[in-house]
């Protein structure tokens, strides 16, 4: 049984291990967690021959330095981050071989905001309530701290020349249009201010939620609601008039009006927008949102058959 090992050489407070979702516990206050950009994470797993939801390392702000204690096959996807193996640069979106003793480190993010490091066999991280995914603000999961040794699974034979399909590569347009469906706390004629202006992604965003700043703060009739359930993608509107989009580690209840929901399909795009990038919203029918998601998941699913 060839179990490999890799050591973390530097602290990385904004990076985390993310894999399958922590499901079934929303009613107790646990969000699903998991990758902010699940498409890129699964792309990384595909490149190294893993299962779809094997645990990867999510890289944000800056990546850690690592040293391999065994041979490994790795791939980096998502944001176009500078990657170096023993100071030799290597490209994203392609599986490469690391030898025991090799050191891996990362430079700056060129395009996008979040990257994923997959290792063949997957990182072995202790599960908590059915998932390895980290929930930082509640100290749940394994922190990526200096000196940590992480095991990974057995290397397997696979076709090494896998290419990342174009539909799994990130996009980072000048202005991202996020598609939404109607909110549950506003009437149809009340949400126009959400759709007739551009917003800036606030630096004050995190895995719980992406805060966005409106050119003209949005006003609606209802300022507060009685606390009610919150799902991923929900756009909450606090009294400031600047919306918050609920992401992977979101709170599960809240009292701000839910003015719309970003469709599940587009949340992965949102994850790749750095602070100060521009977004806008466009409302579509729920049926269309479901159709987009089903088609995408079917395509991704085929890669892992």
């Amino acid at each position: 049984m060839g179990v490999g090992k890799v050591e973390i050489l530097s602290e990385s407070p904004f990076c985390s291990f993310q894999g399958k979702l922590r499901k079934g516990l929303l009613k107790y206050g646990f969000p699903h967690s998991g990758a902010m950009d699940s498409v890129s994470m699964r792309g990384a797993n595909y490149l190294v021959g893993n299962q779809e939801w094997s645990t990867c390392m999510e890289l944000a702000v800056s990546g850690p330095k690592l040293e391999f204690k065994s041979n490994a096959v790795i791939a980096v996807t998502g944001a176009d981050i500078e990657c170096f193996l023993n100071d030799q640069s290597f490209p994203c979106n392609k599986a490469i071989v690391a030898k025991s003793g090799d050191q891996l480190h990362f430079g700056k993010f060129n395009t996008g905001f979040i990257s994923y490091l997959a290792i063949q066999g997957g990182f072995f991280i202790n599960e908590f309530l059915g998932s390895c995914s980290t929930l930082h603000h509640l100290n749940i999961g394994t922190n990526i701290s200096k000196g940590l040794q992480v095991e990974f699974g057995e290397s397997i034979q696979f076709e090494s020349e896998r290419h990342l399909p174009n539909h799994m590569k990130i996009i980072q347009p000048e202005l991202l249009t996020l598609r939404t469906v109607s909110g549950v706390d506003v009437s149809e004629d009340e949400d126009s201010e959400l759709y007739n202006q551009e917003f800036l992604v606030s630096p004050n965003s995190n895995r719980m939620g992406i805060r966005i700043t409106a050119e003209k703060p949005i006003e609606i009739k209802e300022k507060e609601i009685i606390s009610s359930g919150i799902l991923k993608g929900t756009i909450q509107l606090p009294a400031s008039g600047n919306p918050i989009i609920m992401t992977a580690d979101h709170q599960t209840a809240g009292g701000y009006p839910r003015v719309a929901s970003v469709i599940t399909h587009d949340l992965d795009y949102l994850a790749q927008m750095p602070p100060n990038s521009k977004i806008r919203f466009r409302k579509i029918a729920v049926e269309k949102a479901v159709d987009l998601l089903r088609k995408r998941e079917q395509k991704i699913g085929l890669l892992f058959d």
Partner: peptide
């Protein structure tokens, strides 16, 4: 998949890949 019970609401999350609203 999920049900969040609140004061005056129940929020349900379902698998939209295989089930219709």
């Amino acid at each position: 998949n999920e049900m969040i019970i609140a004061y005056q609401s129940i929020c349900i999350q379902f698998d939209s890949l295989v089930c219709d609203y």
